[in-house]
Amino acid sequence: MRKSRVQGLVKGDGLENLLRREVKMKVKIYITLKKGVLDPQGKTVQDALHSMGYKGTDKLRIGKYMEMELNDTSPEEAEKSVKEMCEKLLANPVIEDYRFEVEAA
C-alpha cells in the first residue's frame, strides 16, 4: 500500500483524495443456493414453521452471510478482490450465487 501512496503523491493527488482512496472497508457477503438446488435444511426448517402454525411460509432457503473488514484499500480494489474471493473460495459456482456490499467502515 505504501507504493500506491507514493504513486498518488507523484501524480499530485491532494491529501484529501489520498485519505478517501485508502480506508478501511466493511464487506458484507451473501451466499445463496441456486435455483433448483435441493435444500434439505431449508425444507426441514420450513416444515417446522408449518407445524408451529405459520402455514403461509413457502420456498424457505438457507444461505450464508459473511462479513469482514478490508484494510488499506479503495472501494474499487475492494470490489475486485471480494469478487475474486467469492469465485475462488467463498462460493461454489456449481450450487451457489453470491452478492456483496462494500462500504466504508
Binding site: 438446488v37 435441493l38 434439505p40 435444511q41 426441514t44 461454489n92 456449481v94 450450487i95
Partner: peptide, 17 residues
C-alpha cells in the same frame, strides 16, 4: 476432487440431514 474441478458436481448434505 469436486472442489478442485477435476470432477464435476458437488456433494451436498445428505437428504436425511
Amino acid at each position: 476432487l469436486t472442489e478442485t474441478g477435476l470432477l464435476p458436481g458437488v456433494l451436498l448434505r445428505n437428504r436425511s440431514l
